[in-house]
Write a protein that binds this DNA or RNA. Structure first.
Lengths: 261, 261
DNA sequence: TCTAATCGTGCATAAACATGTAAATTGACT
DNA sequence: AGTCAATTTACATGTTTATGCACGATTAGA
């Protein structure tokens, strides 16, 4: 948190800009433990180099983010990032994490703190690429025949690999959820994989955007007994929330996790 | 803990840089029990050699080893793409291909014809991402603990997965080659993996940019008997070419493969 | 319009910087 | 041993850089 090389700070800002993220001057000031003036000077310098565009309160990237995934472009990414922030707050140092495939889980990777003493396993190629791009977190990749819809391997060899793991905390990727049908996905093999994943994990969490509550998917993974926390957005309708709680799910609203914003 | 050979200090700094660590001048001064001036002199020298980038307060590695791929992409890519074009010309429909990790092999993916009736296996996360992005080629991913330098898995589980394959044609990633030392790489585990890969492959090809002929790497993979074709650039010096042929390698010059250009 | 946050600029301070010089160390040769 | 050249070091010099604070100007939002 506190000290690093003064100028590496500017590189960090530049890297975030390159990812397409927007910069808030005041936030960076507390994050790097310097005055806002210093941050503003960095932003001015970066803007002079054509690396960003200055706006009131911070700066914006000027061109398209490097975007490895088409999913990131969506306006949903801000909402998914908010869910991911809540997920990161639940992680404890030294844990063995599993990040299941899914665009929301992809956001988690970039929000993980810098010197996290953890190990990450995943079956998603995009998530693996993101973890490797960070470079500071040990990574275990689940191999096998790649399912193009899932974006990773969910075949028998992948299941076998997960069977051999003792996962501390897993973040499940979910396609659809309902009080009656429980958690479900589109692919048969994916469902088998996720059931195994849940069985081998001590803590099981799913980040769920509100629209997932009205999706339908054919293959059921499990119900309230198979998952420890559902992290949901603040705008989840009261009906859905009530139904989920009555079905036995443990809901965690965003505002409960991140009181300050 | 004070003194050692004076110049070993510079090697230590260089090693840390190579690991991607950042250097703080003041910290090193107390650690080595010398004045900051001495450390600064080292950093200046290393920066002059292109080993690091100087910043206020210390120095930063210029290319983080965690993303050698994304950094190498684009640079020299024209030469690598020419090699990759030759590689694509050697592929026959219906083959089971293995693309070993390496930036040159990454270029192959984008040059593959559209309706190629083939299956690709790889242990490289970047190559897997590229194949998945295409979306038209079945992909098998080799899992395991990810080696950040290699950019993929080369551990025991990866070796075991390759042992179970009958590969039709494999494109080997090579770090260094010489007539006497044969083919060699920087990582021990990588060498073991590549030896297994060669053993399980019917046709074995390596694409080699000319500068690889003057690199040195500690771990030997094999010699002329272990590889079927070395695809080399046209600008390969006559001495290197002659030495390689005398050592028994089968060389394929670019101009022999792609007469029209 | 008014208010509060943000911005730009100037200035003082402290840290880090490059440069030069002399002392200390090393290694080789007589 | 003794000497010499080359290297490396620490210290002193002046310069550059980054930072925080104070001030007034500008902006966004009510």
């Amino acid at each position: 948190m506190s000290n690093s090389l003064p100028l590496s700070r500017r590189d960090v800002i530049e890297a975030r800009l390159a990812e397409g993220r927007q910069i808030v001057a005041a936030s960076l000031a507390v994050e790097f433990n310097v005055s806002e003036d210093a941050v503003r000077r960095d932003l001015r310098a970066l803007a002079a180099e054509g690396k960003c565009r200055r706006v009131y309160g911070g700066a914006l990237p000027l061109l398209t983010p490097s975007q490895p995934m088409s999913a990131r472009i969506g306006q949903e990414s801000e909402r998914k990032r908010a869910l991911a922030r809540a997920a990161v707050a639940m992680i404890e140092p030294g844990e063995f994490l599993f990040l299941d495939s899914g665009s929301t889980n992809l956001e988690i990777v970039e929000l993980l703190p810098k010197n996290l003493e953890a190990m990450i396993a995943t079956n998603s190629i995009d998530i693996a690429a993101a973890v490797m791009k960070r470079g500071d977190i040990p990574l275990v990749l689940i191999g096998g025949a790649v399912n193009p819809i899932v974006g990773g391997s969910v075949d028998a060899s992948a299941v076998a690999a997960v069977e051999a793991m003792n996962i501390g905390r897993c973040f499940l990727g979910v396609c659809a959820i309902s009080a009656r049908g429980g958690i479900s996905v589109y692919e048969h093999a994916d469902a088998i994989f996720k059931r195994t994943l849940l069985r081998r994990s001590a803590a099981r969490i799913a980040l769920i955007t509100s629209e997932k509550f009205h999706e339908r998917a054919p293959h059921r993974i499990g119900g309230a007994a198979d998952i420890d926390w559902l992290v949901v957005e603040d705008d989840l309708p009261g009906d859905d929330e009530k139904a989920a709680i009555e079905a036995g799910f443990s809901l965690l609203r965003l505002r409960d996790v991140t009181p300050s914003s």
